[in-house]
Simulated assay, not measured.
Amino acid sequence: MNLDFSPEDVAFRDEVRAFIASDYPADIRAKQDAGIDLDRDDYLAWHRVMAKKGWVAPGWPAEYGGPGLSDVQKFLLAEELAFADTAPILPFGLKMVAPVIYTFGTPEQKARWLPPTLAGDIWWCQGYSEPGAGSDLASLTTRAVREGDHYVVNGQKTWTTLAQYADWGFFLVRTDPTAKPQMGISFLLIDMKSPGVTVRPIITMDGRHEVNEVWLEDVRVPVENRIHNENEGWTCAKFLLAHERTNIANVAGSKRSLQKLRKIAEKEGIADDPGFAAKLAELEIDLLALEYTELRSLARQSSGRGPGPESSLLKIKGTEIQQRLTELTLEAVGPYGLPDARGLGNAGPVGPDYAGRAAPTYFNVRKTSIYGGSNEIQRNIIAKLVLGL
C-alpha cells in the first residue's frame, strides 16, 4: 500500500492539529498537567467533542455514522491525538461492542444501541473474564437460563475495566452447559443498573480503582438483548477479540511514550550513554515495524474484511513494546522511581515530577500481555492460522 502522504492527507493532518488546539477542553488539560486522574465526566466530555466533529468513530462504516476516512487519515488522526496527549477515547463501546452490533445485530438492535454509543450517551464495559476463565475463555461458567422472553443470569466476572461507571455491559454467558465449550455460549447486552448486578472494586498495585469484579445474581435480561444466535456467541467473541487485540497495540500511544522517554533520558543525562541509546534505537526499530503492520491491518479492514491473524501479532508486539517503554523509563529515572518515599520519612515522592508515576506505570503495564488473550495464546493462534501447525 502507498504510505506517502498526499496533499489531502497533509491538509487533514493540519485540520486535526488545529481542531485539537482550539477544541480540546482546557479543564481536562489542566487536570492532566497537574497529574490528577480523569473521571467519567472528563472522558465523556472529550468523547462528545469528538462526536460533534464527526471523528469519534473513525473505523465505523459511513452508514452507521463513521466519517469515511481513508486508511492513512485514520492513522494520522490516531497519531495526532496521541502526540497531543489527549484523553483516550474509551474503546469498549466504539471499538469493541459496536462492531459486533453492526455486524451481527438486527436492524432494531442497531437502531437502539449504535446512535447513543456514538454520541457518548452509553458507557460500556466488558464481561468476559471470570476467576476461572481468562485466557481459556471458553471455560466460562456464568449461566443464562431461558425463561420465556428473558434469560436469568447468574455468575461472576472479573477484571471488568471501569465497570463502576458503566451503563451497559456486553457479556459472554453459557446458555447450553451440555454443548462443547465454544458452542454453548451466547452474547448478551446487560443493563448494569439491573437488579442483581453488583460491582465491587479491585484496587491495583498502583493504588487505582480501574478494574472490578461483577456479580450477577438472578439478573433478568430480555432475549431481545442477545446479539446473534443463541449458543453462537463465540463467533461474536472471536470477532470482538480480533478488534480488541488490534486496538491494544496502540502504536500511536507508544510513539508518544517514546518521545517522552527521550526527553526524560536527556534530562537525566543518559541519552548519550551507548548502552541506553542502543536500547532506545532497537525499540524504535521494532515500533516502526509494528506501525507498518498496523497500517496493513487497517487496509485489510477497509477492504471489507475483519482483522485477521495479524491482530495477534499486533497484540504481542504492541504490548511487549509498551512494557519495554515502561522498563526503560524506570531505568532512566533510577532511584527517583521509588514508588513512594513516604515510608522513608519524607513528605512524599522524591525527585522530578516525571519520575512520580514511573514505578506505578511499570507495574500496571505488566497486565497488557495478559488481557485480550494472553500473549502465549496469541502465539498459539499464529502457529495454527499462519504456520498451519
Results as ranks from 00 to 15, higher is better:
288 L>E: 15
297 S>K: 04
262 R>C: 03
228 H>W: 13
227 I>S: 08
269 G>E: 07
234 W>N: 05
242 A>G: 03
287 L>C: 07
283 L>F: 02
205 M>W: 10
282 E>N: 07
209 H>K: 14
214 V>L: 15
206 D>I: 02
281 A>D: 15
233 G>F: 08
245 R>F: 03
247 N>S: 12
236 C>I: 00
217 E>S: 10
246 T>S: 08
255 K>H: 13
237 A>E: 08
252 A>M: 06
218 D>P: 01
284 E>H: 03
215 W>D: 08
270 I>C: 07
239 F>K: 05
230 E>D: 15
210 E>M: 08
238 K>Q: 11
279 K>E: 15
214 V>F: 04
249 A>H: 04
208 R>S: 14
271 A>S: 09
250 N>W: 05
283 L>G: 06
216 L>D: 01
222 P>I: 05
205 M>L: 11
298 L>K: 11
200 R>T: 15
285 I>Y: 04
294 E>K: 11
243 H>F: 06
295 L>R: 15
252 A>T: 10
233 G>P: 00
217 E>W: 00
267 K>L: 14
228 H>Y: 10
223 V>T: 14
276 F>G: 07
270 I>Q: 08
296 R>W: 08
283 L>E: 09
205 M>V: 13
209 H>L: 10
269 G>N: 04
239 F>V: 03
265 A>C: 11
298 L>M: 11
280 L>A: 06
238 K>E: 15
201 P>A: 02
221 V>G: 07
221 V>T: 02
251 V>T: 12
204 T>D: 14
212 N>Y: 15
268 E>Y: 06
275 G>D: 12
258 L>E: 09
223 V>G: 04
221 V>F: 04
228 H>I: 00
269 G>K: 06
288 L>N: 15
282 E>C: 00
208 R>Y: 04
276 F>V: 01
264 I>Q: 10
230 E>T: 14
255 K>C: 12
270 I>L: 13
237 A>F: 14
255 K>L: 12
211 V>F: 05
258 L>V: 04
279 K>L: 10
295 L>K: 13
222 P>K: 10
245 R>D: 01
211 V>P: 01
284 E>C: 06
282 E>K: 13
227 I>T: 02
296 R>V: 05
204 T>H: 03
260 K>T: 09
215 W>Q: 09
256 R>C: 03
202 I>T: 10
245 R>L: 04
270 I>P: 06
227 I>A: 06
261 L>N: 06
236 C>K: 02
207 G>H: 12
216 L>F: 15
204 T>N: 14
294 E>D: 13
254 S>P: 00
241 L>P: 00
221 V>Q: 12
219 V>T: 00
220 R>T: 01
299 A>M: 08
210 E>P: 02
288 L>F: 03
241 L>K: 09
234 W>V: 04
202 I>S: 07
243 H>V: 01
259 Q>G: 05
207 G>F: 09
